[in-house]
Amino acid sequence: MGFLDRLREGLSRTKQEIVSRFDEIVERADAETGRSKPIDVDTVEALEELLISADVGVAATERIVGAVRARAHRGESLRDLVKAELLAIFRAVDTPSQNGHVPQVTLIVGVNGTGKTTTVGKLANLLKASGKKPLVCAADTFRAAAVEQLAIWADRADVDIVRAKDGSDPAAVVFDAIQSGRARGRDPILVDTAGRLHNRANLMSELDKIRRVAGRAAAGAPHEVLLVLDATVGQNGLTQAREFTSVAGVTGIVLTKLDGTAKGGIAVAIAHDLKLPIRYVGVGEGIDDLIPFSADDYVDALFQQKW
């Protein structure tokens, strides 16, 4: 089942579907009468509304709208122009994730409540299904029962877990996990870290320490750092991405909770401004509900106005 099918399935729970003003206008503009005319004010406004309501943000919206406006007179379909513009942003950052390291160490980071632990569980399951032997590391020693939560996921995905001893330092757990993974022939190693707000200097320096210690346990580690973003996040998502990138060297985004009505459009601004690709998207609570990101499907989904 593809990305769009899953997304559609997730969305099918809602009985209400309201065709957006944008769709109406796009259809009108795409109809033969509107085709070769420059975009009128109404259309631009509707376009802005669509992007802003998807949390793309004012700056990115202005850029996209500006680009579309500049080309509109050529008689192309407005819908296609906007999609092309969005796709171009994602394509520009679509670099393959780093591979070839054994064991590959992936840190999962983000602010509180975005779904890091759930993502680690689902990702372990996805990687195992692709024939790998992942090991998960529970380095969230702060939140009550976070380790237990990951242990349950590890059990569901049938993968090994290295857990923190009580009161231990998260960086030490990561070190143990990498050693243990190497000894047991596990690869990749997925590290669940505690949620932390990016403006808390002490917590961010803890992340920096985890990173340094991981590098000591395995050359070049962490090889991938995934920032988990809640699709409902607003403009603060860009600040989060910027801060986590500067401290932890984020290499990609996981966009979770896309089965709701939020679109996570800030990822567009992140892709453009910080050149960070979206790697995976979370579309439900089940263990299979994490899938690799597809720019085409995502852009399609942006235009499928639900509600």
């Binding site: 409902t232 998502g237 009505t261």
Partner: peptide, 26 residues
């Protein structure tokens, strides 16, 4: 930190269940 979607989710929780107050976290 919620974005534009806040209006939909909060509105729907209120419509279906009822809300007497909001706790704003983080």
């Amino acid at each position: 930190m919620t974005g534009q979607d806040a209006i939909k989710s909060a509105g729907e929780f209120n419509r279906r269940i009822g809300v007497t107050g909001v706790v704003l976290t983080k």
